[in-house]
Amino acid sequence: MKIVIVDYKAGNVQSVLFALERLGAQATVTSNAEEIQSADKVIFPGVGEASSAMRALKENNLDLLLPTLTQPFLGVCLGMQLLCQHSEEGDTEMLGIIPVPVKKFEAAVKVPHMGWNNLHHLKSNLFTGIKEDEYAYFVHSFYAPVTEHTIAQSSYPEPFSAALQYKNFYAVQFHTEKSGPAGAHILQNFLNL
């Protein structure tokens, strides 16, 4: 199986590589269109700020390539938000693959939402073998609301999308690569798709 990690200089690529290595899987880190198109699985990590990440994607023409992909695709954290439509972070037009907006948490709670929180309302083969209310590690200041494309929820304190799916595009707000054995299990589920 050929796994690629999309490289646009805005991801915690090394942590994802190590998480795959712990599962016995190897991945290629690349921004090359042909490499990405020919992969069986594509992982799209991301940390940092939305508008600069979008700029980095455009510099590599990845904003045009990614929406055309048809193989199982996993966005992680900012990689999830980049798949959405529009983000309140920097008033940024995102890739628009998943028709969901990205909003800022209300000032009533501590921001960033940082730490371990429960996953609930799980409904996808991405979560096969994961129990309701399993914990995952989050760190983010913006969120996607719950919509028909939500496949897992978390609450802070209101429910938001902990994971999204639209066609072949899967996306998780939490860090699978840092969420202990449960995170590893979810990553393995993605590789099994």
């Binding site: 090394q14 190590f18 860090h175 202990g180």
Partner: peptide, 27 residues
């Protein structure tokens, strides 16, 4: 980062953007 699957913070004598870049790039 290779062996630990929970988040970690590194501190101590960090004073430059370049120091941080190296630490984050390594996990």
């Amino acid at each position: 980062a290779r062996y630990i699957d929970i988040p970690f913070t590194v501190g101590g004598g960090i004073s430059a953007v370049e120091d941080v870049e190296v630490l984050l790039q390594n996990g």
